[in-house]
Amino acid sequence: MSKLNSQQLVYVIDDDEAVRDSMGMLLESADLAYRCFSSADSFFAAHDGSQRGCLVLDIRMPGMTGLELQQKLAQIGSSLPIIFITGHGDVPMAVEAMRQGALDFLRKPVNEENFLERIMHALDLESGNWHQKLDRDQAQQRVESLTERERQVFLLVAQGLANKAVASQLGISERTVEVHRAQVMKKLDARTLAQLVRIHLQSE
């Protein structure tokens, strides 16, 4: 709960109004923000990549099915965790959904405690993913701010080469390497070699 982000929403997608509405009420009772969609199509139409949170997705719906939505979201690089809600005879479909990277599936009628637990887990996961992504984005941005020569020095230093070895590889003086290195540490906001190495890994 600690990491719960106020921007996160639970997206409930189910064609049955009562199921949708009751799920919404349950989320409300657990103080979770949510938004309902009555079809996979309408969610996909509203999706623009900025959505945070997780999906609770009915696997069997008229029009675009839950599985189809999962595939489409994967194609455009969405990393929203998906919890599938399945009916009685839908286990083969659920297995397929898991294979395609679904976080979990729950059978109707669902156990509410379990349901909320899975949702919290999904939101945590998404939150972690999001922060990781955020760090990665920042690291990339900083690396991009380096000059060509600085970037060369950065890559070699991050691989663990000493200044002398860097100087000899790049055909410049050791002194010049020292100047570039200081500049790199400053631009990447790194105080130790270890931090420099992590930024390198994140930016890859």
Partner: peptide, 12 residues
């Protein structure tokens, strides 16, 4: 479907 809803309304 209604059973699912009933259970969730009750829990809520």
């Amino acid at each position: 479907q209604p059973l699912t809803a009933i259970s969730m309304y009750a829990q809520s």
